[in-house]
């Protein structure tokens, strides 16, 4: 495996006709589990497809695992696994045949592809259903067989495009557990594209945030949270409206929660002392003040909002 960055993008631009899907994207990732975040149409899937060599780069240079996407696509794809967002299956094949076939197409010898197909189907939890036609599978099983197909040739880097799409909560947790095992215990680099921020939060150590085809931010999950405002959950007694006005004068935002409880977002450089100051000024009493964990969703909204 290459010692350099796992993903190295320099000025990558992808166009579909006149539409610019990726606009001068520059980013580097050292590997591990990386989340690809952004609203619909941000360019997440286009980025994955560009890295797989499925769509041509109009400009720029992209290296994955040290290989140039344009110059060595076949060599590179032998080391990549891809689980597409759309429902995708080889027609007329059972789960085992489809996984074995995916391995053969990836360049595996026949016997190894057969053995690995059984192994990864077992890992994906499809041992009972592996001899059934994939067209008879439920949505969750189809997601699992897509994962098995992406894993059969033991890739060094796995691209997962919305892997929990259509799964029930239990199936979603199981899928995320499988992905976590791959990235944390088995040393496979993972790029996880998802619009479900909790999925990314559960699995990934860092995120690439995209918007309108541009790379807006590359940050660790904790860094992204830290980069946003702190927040406190405050239980009040007294005039809530006066407290809100006092907070706003200090540059803090107040969002109502249950009953007399509010959430106060404080900008960087301010803190709990300012919350108490606002309470004093408005003649209200703070009964409880607890720092709240900023969710990745809020952090992301903050990043996307600032760059708007």
């Amino acid at each position: 495996m290459s010692d350099g960055p796992v993903i190295d993008l320099r000025g990558v631009t992808v166009r579909y006709g006149r539409f610019v899907a990726l606009d001068d994207v520059t980013a580097t990732s050292e590997g591990g589990a990386v989340g690809l975040l952004g609203p619909n149409g941000a360019g997440k899937s286009s980025l994955i497809k560009a890295l797989l060599g499925l769509v041509p780069l109009a400009e720029g240079e992209a290296k994955v695992l040290g290989d140039d996407v344009r110059r060595q696509p076949d060599r590179l794809r032998r080391r990549l696994g891809y689980m597409p967002e759309r429902d995708a299956a080889f027609p007329h094949l059972t789960g085992f045949q489809a996984t074995w076939y995916a391995g053969r197409l990836a360049g595996m010898p026949d016997a190894d592809a057969r053995r690995r197909a059984h192994e990864v189907l077992l890992f994906a939890g499809l041992e009972e259903a592996r001899y059934r036609d994939v067209s008879t599978y439920s949505t969750g099983m189809r997601q699992r067989v897509k994962l098995a197909q992406a894993l059969v040739h033991d890739p060094d880097l796995l691209f997962l495009d919305e892997p929990t799409n259509g799964l029930d909560p239990k199936g979603r947790d199981e899928m995320l557990a499988l992905i976590k095992t791959l990235s944390r215990a088995k040393g496979i680099h993972v790029v996880l594209s998802s619009h479900l921020l909790r999925d990314v939060e559960d699995v990934c150590g860092s995120v690439l945030v995209m918007r309108h085809g541009k790379m807006v931010k590359h940050e660790t999950i904790e860094g992204l949270r830290k980069a946003t405002d702190d927040a406190f959950s405050v239980l009040l007694r007294g005039d809530g409206e006066a407290f809100k006005l006092a907070c706003e004068r200090r540059g803090m935002a107040v969002r109502p929660r249950k009953g007399t409880e509010v959430e106060v977002h404080v900008p960087r450089g301010t803190g709990a002392r300012d919350v108490f100051g606002a309470a004093l000024e408005s003649g209200t009493v703070v009964h409880k003040l607890v720092p709240t964990r900023v969710s990745l969703e809020e952090a992301l909204l903050d990043v996307l909002g600032r760059d708007d």
Partner: peptide, 26 residues
């Protein structure tokens, strides 16, 4: 007792058989 965990594979990925042949076979 089946080992359900994922194991790495260090076999030959150079693909001695062309992809077109694999498609023909299947």
């Amino acid at each position: 007792v089946h080992d359900r965990s994922y194991s790495r594979w260090d076999g030959d990925r150079t693909g001695k058989v062309p992809g077109a042949w694999v498609i023909l076979d299947r």
